[in-house]
Amino acid sequence: MNKAEPLIARYSHKDYKSAVKPIWCPGCGHFGVESSLFRALAYLELPPEQVAVVSGIGCSSRIPAYTQCYGFHGVHGRAPAVATGLKLARPELTVIVTSGDGDAFSIGGNHFIHACRRNVDMTLLVMDNEVYGMTKGQPSPTTPADWDSKIAPGGTGVNPFAPLAVALASGANFIARGFSGDPNGVARLLVEAIQHPGFSFVQVLSPCVTYRPEEKFWKKMVHSSSVEPTHDPAVAGHRLLSDDGFTTGVFYIGNRPTYTATVGTSDNDLSAIEEELAI
């Protein structure tokens, strides 16, 4: 967080926001997350053209087009893989994946796990509203087992999983949780996540006003972490597994080496390779 402060702000919100207006419902938590992202990027003074926002499918995944950054809006659940390819090809870019609980944890679960494990330098920002919004309110992997819905009357009967604990077990190098109603707090988490080398995972609890109106009470349930982030996965694991899911803050800061198999300067002389084949 040590940074020489400029006399005037080089970048602000408007430098990162595109002319495309979000289709999110008014009142959606994602508006707060969008603000947080822009504040974090402005704080880090990242030129918009040096930032790539990669997403999959869902409400949260609409963000790339709402930014002035480079964006990639791909298929459902696979954004971490796209981001991996992009970051390895262009290591100088700041790569941010924006995703939701269905996109990242359900259809994209395998990529989530392996992105944590691979530890490429990028930030995964998951806007978790515990519901599928784009398809009209189906339960996601983080929805409580007893949440009643059309597709699962009386609830799914399936316990939600703990994404932060999964990320820790999979090897993510930075793990934090924020709340969309606290955009400056989320901005701070994002700044730390982007600055920390390797794969950073930030879950942001972001209420869905349309399908989960009860989530507006989340603002009364969230509480900030009273302890310092740990570098010890065992401590972080205990904390995450005994947490109520509403603690915000940084849970874990790891020091695993970043995956660095990046594409370098291309050599176009194939003669040595072709010579191997000569007979």
């Binding site: 796209v82 390895l88 090809a89 990529h111 291309s266």
Partner: peptide
């Protein structure tokens, strides 16, 4: 040797998506 990279992905879906990411980044993939 040519300055490039080949990585093993977690599945074919990931490998195809990684290719698109790298290609979007300007590298023939």
């Amino acid at each position: 040797k040519l300055g490039g990279q080949l990585i093993q992905a977690e599945d074919e879906i990931a490998s195809m998506n990684m290719v698109l990411g790298a290609s979007f980044g300007g590298i023939p993939s």
